[in-house]
């Protein structure tokens, strides 16, 4: 009975979605805001990657809200999982250990590259932060006895979050709106350009990386009980 009701709901839902989109101006959307942003972004923000200009420049408050949601989710996850008791398990084999040692610096460089070039090429703080978190988690796979220091992760996360808000507040002192990009936006396409956007993305990257790394460490730890 429940399955029949579910199937009916799904049929109706897919029908509705298909019909609604049949009426959309599909493939040629009336992009009023998008058009305006594309014309204004190169001179107003100076980021070659317009998505970055939207994420950090025009809708920076959204990104701050997203960071808070991620922070709340990671904190709640850590709270629900409770205190960890450390890891057990055999250390990885020779190939895993050597591969991890080889990959760790490369992933670090790749993550930092993606973070720092977020305003020029696809990428940015979120993607780079995830790569950084994975880079710091990899050694734990090879050597389960070691552990990342939670204190340091918390310090990095707190400092990065504060830096994001401080950069936002600094715009207030100049008489502009919260999170307005600061500084001169320089030459379009240069590494040091688009004002404070790279700094904001660096803060985002560090925060996301530290949060996700601590989450991964908590998830990979052993249960308190037997199991």
């Amino acid at each position: 009975m429940r399955n029949i009701a579910t199937l009916l709901l799904l049929g109706g839902l897919s029908f509705l979605l298909l019909v609604i989109t049949g009426g959309l101006l599909f493939g040629n959307p009336p992009m009023l805001i998008g058009q305006g942003i594309q014309q204004a972004a190169p001179t107003e923000v100076g980021a070659a990657n317009i998505v970055t200009a939207v994420v950090l420049g025009y809708r920076g408050l959204d990104t701050l809200g997203e960071l808070s949601i991620l922070f709340a989710a990671a904190t709640a996850g850590g709270l629900v999982l409770g205190s960890t008791r450390g890891r057990s398990g055999r250390p990885g084999g020779f190939i895993l250990r050597t591969g991890v040692d080889l990959l760790f610096p490369l992933m670090l460089v790749a993550g930092l590259y993606v973070v720092m070039h977020g305003h020029l090429t696809p990428g940015g703080g979120f993607q780079g932060g995830v790569i950084l978190a994975a880079a710091f988690f990899l050694p734990l796979l090879a050597r389960p006895q070691e552990s990342l220091d939670h204190t340091w992760l918390s310090v990095i996360e707190a400092l990065a979050g504060s830096a994001f808000i401080a950069l936002g507040l600094a715009a207030l002192f100049e008489g502009r709106a919260f999170l307005t990009p600061l500084f001169d936006h320089g030459v379009l396409g240069a590494l040091v350009s688009s004002g404070s956007l790279p700094l904001l993305y660096l803060a985002v990257g560090l925060k996301v990386g530290a949060e996700l790394a601590s989450l991964l460490v908590r998830l990979s730890a052993d249960d308190e009980g037997a199991s």
């Binding site: 696809p122 993607q127 994975a134 988690f137 989450l215 991964l216 998830l219």
Partner: peptide
């Protein structure tokens, strides 16, 4: 941009978690 995020987060980190 979104493709990179989806590949890194969705296929990599999410699977790991």
């Amino acid at each position: 941009d979104v493709a990179m995020t989806e590949a890194v987060v969705g296929a990599g980190l999410s699977g790991l978690i």
